[in-house]
Amino acid sequence: MSRILFKKEGRAKFISHLDLMRTMQRVFIRSGIEIKHTEGFNPHPYMNFAMPLPVGTESRCELMDFVLLGGAQAREVPARLNASMPEGIRVLDCWDEKRKFKDIKWLDMEARLFYDNKVSPTQALRDLYSGEHIVIEKRTKRGSAQVDIAALHGGLEITEAEDGAVLIAARLPVQEPALSPAQLISAIEQLRPDLRPDFAAYRRVEVRDSELRPFR
């Protein structure tokens, strides 16, 4: 099994997961790199993504698996794929890998919160997120549940960026009970609606295993 690490940034963050799969399929064809197809009535290239990326979220830590055929070497993959990529998607690395995606435990992410007509409430947000218990309503497929995000996250830092945006960097669990970036930020809406930002932009930074090592 081969794995690529790629980033998806800028305009490309608006490409949906389904469209990304189509795009990757075509990128392989354009690059002339042969990969294994599924068996069956309607064969399609076998590609496995670690965690589908929501539309509008940037990332520099996306992982995707596939099986190389035709003697291509992992080390030549990034340059060949990048030559055929649409703007904003870049393969950073490719290697042979056996580890399963289920070993990913943590996601390091950043949220940038923008306030248009007021000073960024950086300190108020620090106060909110440093509480001993931060209980929010989390909507799931089975209904909604109360969760304490203070007990879930693996570290959280709030700073103010040069452009005045509030930067929240957090380490979030990706397995049940998982906490998504949007859920983390929903604490503001739920607990301090007065601090609700005018816009929030998300970015995935790194994925880690249970030992907190970057998942490679």
Partner: peptide
């Protein structure tokens, strides 16, 4: 479907 408004296609 925001991808139809961004450009940047291959």
């Amino acid at each position: 479907k925001p991808a139809r408004y961004t450009g940047g296609e291959y």
